[in-house]
């Protein structure tokens, strides 16, 4: 049994220690919001937050995550300001990459609540979207960043409400 904190809850999983968190989430815990795209750290579809840092869960062994905090798309609650910006800008096409895009954005804005366009592009360069929703992602990130939620006065980890 390996334990970690998933979206604020203590979780114990019985899986081989080398199992990537992606498959722990999807196959053991039935949390399918985190997606499999390449299995090699190249596409970002599987992005989760490991102690607040955007991390490719396809390369993150369960053993490494032991005792740590993992946050996934399910943990955002559905009405997170980033998610709202996504819906308002009709960002998703096929939608498959978007959990990863959103988690990378949440990680970015937590440390840099008012990123420049170039900073957004660099932070999200690890997340491939084959549908080419990038222009809208850019718009949505800017919109989320400009919301009061990411006001400088808010807590820097983005967890303020």
């Amino acid at each position: 049994m390996t334990s970690f904190i998933l979206n604020g809850e203590n979780i114990s999983v019985d899986a081989e220690p080398d199992t990537p968190i992606l498959w722990v989430l999807r196959d053991h815990l039935n949390k399918t919001g985190t997606k499999f795209g390449c299995g090699a750290g190249l596409c970002g579809a599987c992005t989760v937050l490991l102690d607040g840092q955007a991390t490719r869960s396809c390369l993150l062994p369960l053993a490494t995550a032991a005792g740590k905090r993992i946050d996934t798309i399910e943990g955002l609650g559905g009405d997170h300001v980033v998610q709202q910006a996504w819906v308002e800008n009709n960002v998703p096409q096929c939608g498959y990459c978007q959990s990863g895009q959103i988690m990378s954005t949440v990680a970015l804005l937590a440390t840099n609540p008012s990123p420049s366009e170039d900073e957004i592009k660099t932070a999200l360069a690890g997340n491939i979207c084959r549908c080419g929703t990038y222009p809208r992602i850019l718009k949505a990130v800017k919109q989320a960043a400009s919301s009061s939620f990411y006001d400088a006065s808010q807590s820097p980890d983005g967890s303020a409400s």
Partner: peptide, 13 residues
Amino acid sequence: TRPDALQKSTGTA
């Protein structure tokens, strides 16, 4: 608004 926009922004699609 796309009928699937919310589901695809929340990982529930």
